[in-house]
């Protein structure tokens, strides 16, 4: 059996940097449209996300959005969002440095997620951001072309990389044997 062993990891685990992230808290019914304009993206539905390929605006809770964008655009976006919230009770705050991001890509990326998160990874729809946990730490997961992007706390980056890499062990795919 050993000679037929698959030596390819189930998925490629790639740390990704260079994202700006802005947490927005506001009454989305009141300020949603203005925020969407400030973010340059449509307002996502509940648990949804909108993207133009470069930026992503995700629904985090009934009064919270997360804007993910190229780091270089962060300050400008922060300014635009602050403007959009002018006169509103709202909060737009930079959290770019508080996060670690990994791409989990490959045909069996869903297996890696399914080993760590209590979610039906294979059925996770596009355009949806799932906040959950990966093993013992909080994470958000969404689909990207070829797999998933996961983000967690910066301080747990090494842990996240370790558990994702372990879960992607060659030969350990979830397909029935």
């Amino acid at each position: 059996m050993a000679d037929t062993q698959d030596l390819t990891p189930l998925a490629l685990i790639t740390p990704v940097t260079g994202f700006g992230m802005i947490t927005i808290r506001a009454d989305l019914d009141r300020a949603g449209e203005a925020l969407a304009e400030g973010a340059g993206l449509a307002l996502p539905d509940r648990t949804g996300l909108t993207t133009d390929g470069s930026r992503m605006l995700a629904w985090m809770s009934p009064d919270e959005l997360l804007l993910v964008l190229p780091l270089a655009e962060r300050n400008e976006a922060l300014h635009a969002l602050t403007q959009a919230l002018m006169g509103e009770h709202g909060l737009a705050v930079d959290v770019s440095d508080a996060r670690a991001v990994f791409d989990v890509t490959g045909p069996r990326a869903a297996d890696v997620i399914a080993k760590l998160a209590p979610v039906d990874a294979a059925m996770l729809p596009e355009g949806h951001l799932r906040r959950t946990r990966l093993a013992q730490t909080a994470a958000a997961i969404w689909r990207i072309p070829g797999g998933f992007r996961v983000t967690g706390f910066r301080s747990t980056a090494d842990y996240l990389q370790l558990i994702l890499t372990n879960a992607a062990l060659p030969g350990s795919g979830l397909a029935p044997r």
């Binding site: 808290r25 705050v93 930079d94 959290v95 508080a98 301080s155």
Partner: peptide
């Protein structure tokens, strides 16, 4: 009317 944000790791 209060918002909180945990910025510990920022």
């Amino acid at each position: 009317k209060v918002w909180t944000a945990n910025l510990t790791e920022q």
